[in-house]
Design a protein around this nucleic acid. Structure first.
Lengths: 203, 203
DNA sequence: CCACGTATTAGCATCTGCTGCTAATCCAGT
DNA sequence: ACTGGATTAGCAGCAGATGCTAATACGTGG
């Protein structure tokens, strides 16, 4: 019961500190843990923790990748099958980041995003915009679940597509949605040409 | 017309390179631009570009912040007014990241996310889950637009709320949606208690 | 009590990617 | 030919590391 925590305890503390702030330097760590810099180095070595510079770089890259995939990705989730104009399937494995911390239940808009992006990707056109959607969240989805979305074109009139999307976890329907998607030629043009509403596109 | 690009041209190239990869080092920059390391340093100085370490750190922090706000934020956008159980307003200024590069049109799920999270936040309960939604994208929204969403509870039966959300850009309706949200007591419980469908919560 | 092992600390050389400074060189314009 | 902007070179120094060696502290078993 020294003022100083024992080694294994210190190792947990170390991990904790770095969890909270990955940019923290050896010197600072040494101060906070009440040990020498050398000890911190040995600890990092034992725990296989890279140096601050490296950690920062990794965080930067991973976070960037994440932002890109969430914000910029063509399809949310992984496209596992496409038959343009007919049907498409994507798989998304929601992380804890996508869920409410308290309940672990995935936020609805991620499920919507998967379905919507899939519906849009399915349409065989330069540019496609979602005009409307009717969706039902049938059952909560938890972080770690394997979310499989299947989209099918059910109707087509000119540039207006009707796409049904069903998402499942372990074979059970958790989400169902109907999307109206408008396709545009190479010339995107402005909104509301015929049916009136439109909104999404595909790069 | 030397093989080497002129200074202003090189400056643009420099910006471009760093845009593509912010982690790139002075040495590498010098190689790619065909000049000496010193010149790169002078250029960075002129352009007010910080060193690679600093750039990496910034990217890491910003991206992390962004991911958090997109993935974990309670409300997508900034909550500017709430009257629990009645109405709420949030403002979102979509960045280029949220739009398709080709057209600059904001992806539908961001607009949906703003509306959905607002509807959920509006419900005065420990936990709230979206059960269903019917939405219409009336007009394209572009990166840089100021997207104002207004949610109103239009009906309430027990723990079942009906929430209307209208989003505007410069006073013009661009999105309209109707959300069915289920509120739960302190004990979240499992899904489908009465009305059948539910799905979102609030931390 | 002493010896051995583990943990901790210290010190030093070295590396990378920078800053800050001074000095040399090149090259074009008048 | 001279001046001035652009470029290059070289060097000292810093921060935050690594890798290595050595000294010290603190048990615990013999």
């Amino acid at each position: 019961m020294s003022a100083r925590p024992a080694k294994p305890e210190r190792h947990r503390l170390l991990r904790g500190l770095l969890e909270g702030d990955p940019f923290i330097t050896d010197r600072e760590l040494a101060d906070r843990l009440g040990v020498s810099v050398q000890t911190v180095r040995l600890d990092r070595l034992e725990l296989g923790i890279p140096e601050a510079r490296e950690r920062t770089r990794r965080v930067a890259e991973e976070a960037t990748r994440k932002v890109r995939s969430v914000m910029t990705g063509e399809v949310i989730g992984e496209l596992v099958h496409v038959s343009l104009g007919e049907e498409a399937i994507s798989v998304l494995e929601p992380t804890a980041d996508m869920a409410f911390r308290r309940t672990g239940i995935v936020r609805g808009h991620h499920i919507f995003a998967q379905a919507n992006s899939l519906a849009v990707a399915l349409v065989d056109a330069e540019v496609a915009l979602t005009g409307a959607a009717t969706v039902k969240f049938l059952h909560p989805v938890r972080a770690g679940d394997r979310l499989v979305a299947r989209a099918q074109v059910t109707q087509r009139a000119g540039r207006r597509y009707r796409v049904n999307v069903v998402s499942q976890v372990a074979g059970k329907d958790v989400f169902r949605g109907e999307f109206v998607v408008f396709a545009s030629g190479p010339a995107p043009g402005e909104a509301g040409s015929e049916g009136g509403k439109l909104h999404e596109d595909r790069p």
